[in-house]
Simulated scan of single mutants.
Amino acid sequence: MDSVDRQVLSEVRRWAEQGYRFALVTVVRTWGSAPRPAGAWMALRQDGRVCGSVSGGCIEDDLIGRLRAGELAGDLPFSQTYGVTRAEAERFGLPCGGTLELVIEPRPCVSLLAQLEEELACGRLVVRSLTLATGQASLADAVPGESIHWDGKLLRTPHGPAWRLLIIGAGQISRYLAEMAQALDYAVTICDPRPEYRDAWQVPGSRLADGMPDDVVQAMRPDPHLAVVAVTHDPKLDDLALLEALKSPAFYVGALGSRRNNARRRERLMQYFDLSAEQVGRLHGPVGMAIGSRTPPEIALSILAEMTATKYGIVTRTADNGPYRHESTAAAKAAVAGPPLA
């Protein structure tokens, strides 16, 4: 669930407190190049006010028109598809002939949405289930990595921090990295056993861990939705984190430092920590995409750019860990592929 959809939750709570009725719209399936991903939310207030989005604007306009025409006045949720034909896709402004399938809830349960907002504020991962035949909705704990489910009858949408970032070191770069990562909907943990750094840490929304880096990595139970970035410049701390992270399923493991320092780091990891060449080869170091970054905010930006490219499988390094080459992998292509329009 991204930050835009969290804004929807916050806004509909205010609408309900003010006595307004609203409809909740969820993107449940896309084909082709759709503007918003499956799971995206939009709320539509009874007077036509909108929060969130499901497209570039044309579908929103159509839904507002249907609302004012009284077509969204029922009680039970239903599905609606836009862009079935190329002419319709062009009419609604869907790029590249895209198609969207939506689930529209004319009367969502306000108390359940308030409960969902509270769960997310506590950092929990929650799945919301909706049965179209009855309009019954419920909340339950979600499984990490769970994706949206839609079979035409039951809609299950996971909400909460699907991606996690562990930063080793509570310095200046870490502050910018944590703030930017939270804007990209990462749940951020900072690990620094040094009290002089840890006590000065002030980034709301992040979690501070004071254990040793290897213990913290293990405690987080790394999975393919975790990134680990070491930025202390202290091998006694960074190497401990890398030792555990490089053996784990974490999708991204990076360390700050020059090419020379990273070459020495790789030698240490293989010689003293008994990591294989394949495991050490997973290390992104020097960390970050080569964008000429110099300042702490620019370095943080380069790290998140590389993390994003790695997450979507569209960037790799050369064999000598030199300049980047960009590749659209089969997985990335499949994410935007779909059946041709009529």
Score class of each variant (00 low, 15 high):
22 F>G: 10
321 N>D: 07
99 T>D: 01
49 R>K: 15
263 A>E: 06
128 R>P: 15
106 P>Q: 05
209 A>P: 09
39 G>L: 07
16 A>E: 04
72 L>E: 00
170 A>T: 13
153 K>Y: 15
326 H>P: 12
139 L>M: 03
15 W>T: 06
307 M>S: 09
59 I>G: 01
296 P>S: 15
218 Q>Y: 08
322 G>E: 08
114 A>Q: 14
240 L>S: 04
115 Q>F: 14
216 V>H: 11
241 A>W: 04
176 Y>V: 01
68 R>A: 10
117 E>F: 03
258 S>R: 02
108 P>L: 00
125 L>G: 03
269 L>G: 05
208 L>F: 13
145 G>C: 07
203 V>S: 12
118 E>C: 12
137 A>G: 08
306 E>V: 03
310 T>F: 14
124 R>G: 08
276 S>R: 09
135 G>I: 03
159 H>Q: 10
197 Y>C: 10
241 A>C: 07
293 S>R: 05
162 A>H: 09
95 P>H: 07
288 G>V: 13
58 C>Q: 02
314 I>H: 05
254 G>C: 07
108 P>F: 01
329 T>R: 12
20 Y>A: 15
176 Y>F: 11
207 R>V: 14
128 R>L: 08
296 P>W: 11
309 A>V: 02
328 S>V: 11
270 M>L: 13
228 V>Q: 12
19 G>Y: 04
313 G>I: 09
250 A>D: 04
178 A>I: 01
39 G>M: 06
72 L>Q: 01
182 Q>L: 05
47 D>K: 10
49 R>F: 15
217 V>W: 09
171 G>H: 04
99 T>G: 00
295 T>E: 07
272 Y>N: 15
240 L>W: 10
26 T>Q: 04
69 A>W: 14
187 A>M: 10
168 I>P: 13
220 M>E: 12
236 K>V: 15
197 Y>I: 09
84 V>H: 00
70 G>A: 10
258 S>P: 06
242 L>W: 02
341 L>M: 10
64 I>Q: 09
133 A>R: 08
326 H>S: 13
119 E>W: 08
209 A>I: 04
112 L>R: 08
163 W>N: 14
199 D>I: 13
338 G>P: 01
183 A>V: 06
126 V>S: 02
147 S>R: 14
326 H>E: 12
251 F>N: 03
51 C>R: 04
189 T>S: 08
196 E>H: 14
237 L>Q: 05
300 A>W: 11
1 M>I: 15
135 G>W: 06
72 L>I: 02
181 A>K: 05
97 G>V: 00
220 M>P: 15
68 R>L: 11
328 S>R: 12
329 T>F: 09
264 R>K: 11
299 I>N: 05
156 R>P: 15
341 L>Y: 04
39 G>Y: 04
81 T>R: 11
15 W>G: 14
303 I>W: 10
211 G>P: 09
142 A>C: 06
122 C>T: 14
27 V>K: 01
31 W>A: 03
219 A>N: 09
16 A>C: 07
